[in-house]
């Protein structure tokens, strides 16, 4: 590369404060690219969920009918929710790494508004969540999941929008835990929440006491709502309340921790 002499006097750049608190699609795109570069995040979000489908969705009874489709579709929906959970949590929790590396502090030397930062984090989490859901759907299509076309679309959309709970959960944990390896803690925690939320084993198969407790855990609501298109059950307002309340709890937690984080320096 040839070194070109730079002009010694150039017109000064214009001054101004960016619109939308510094939110930009370039930022979102680079954030998403960073997520896809992280091998652990990739395995968690895009490899494990479809692999689980092939492990559990291809068993003997998977061809049996369930609601408007088959058991295989039921398992696929559960794993779409699980995959989106993992993807959005790891994306949100990446703030822990950024805090540890001093990047959050560096961003405070730019016009970026903290709200725009958190919005970008949440959106990149949803992009990764969508990719995770798509991989599970491909696995489902290949592995024999069957239900009406509209049910595929609605179940996927509900799993995706509901993953907002876990984007907020990830952000909260990212601000709560000081570790660079926050996902080593959160991976097992998510598996437990997925189990309690009935994503691995239908809660009907478990004891009634256990079931009534499980209904109040954060993965239950989104799982129950995402299965409605398949099962044809009536709308569950309790499940919807579960999603709304847990999202509010995690967003509040993240905002409170975030305030403390910036006030500390």
């Amino acid at each position: 590369m040839t070194a070109t002499a730079l002009p010694t006097t150039t017109a000064p750049v214009q001054r101004g404060v960016p619109a939308l608190g510094g939110f930009s699609l370039t930022f979102l795109q680079l954030e998403t690219r960073r997520l896809l570069r992280n091998r652990r995040t990739l395995v968690f979000s895009l490899v494990m969920p479809p692999a689980f489908f092939f492990l559990f969705g291809g068993s003997a009874q998977s061809g049996e009918s369930a609601g408007r489709g088959n058991v295989s579709a039921y398992i696929m929906i559960s794993l779409m929710v699980y995959g989106a959970m993992l993807a959005t949590t790891s994306a949100g929790a990446s703030v822990a790494v950024e805090r540890a590396q001093g990047w959050s502090r560096q961003l405070r030397l730019t016009p970026l508004d903290p709200v725009a930062y958190m919005a970008t984090k949440a959106l990149s989490a949803l992009v990764l969540g969508a990719m995770s859901i798509a991989t599970v759907m491909v696995a489902g299509a290949v592995g024999g999941a069957s239900m009406p076309a509209w049910a595929w679309v609605v179940a996927a959309l509900v799993a995706w929008v509901g993953a907002m709970v876990f984007a907020a959960f990830g952000l909260f944990m990212g601000y709560l835990l000081p570790s660079e390896n926050v996902m080593q803690l959160l991976g097992p925690a998510l598996a437990l929440l997925a189990f309690l939320g009935g994503l691995f084993v239908p809660l009907d198969l478990l004891g009634s006491t256990f079931r009534s407790i499980a209904q109040f855990t954060p993965a239950y609501g989104v799982g129950a709502l995402a299965r409605l298109p398949l099962t044809g059950d009536p709308m569950s307002w309790g499940a919807l309340a579960n999603v709304v309340v847990w999202t509010a709890v995690f967003v509040t937690g993240a905002v409170l921790r975030f305030r403390r984080d910036t006030a500390r320096v």
Binding site: G22, F27, L30, Q101
Partner: peptide
Amino acid sequence: SGGLLRDLTVAETLRLTACLFSH
């Protein structure tokens, strides 16, 4: 020290920083 993301390239880091400013 600090204030850099290890998983971005040098040019990406600058593009990211640039997109946060108005000019």
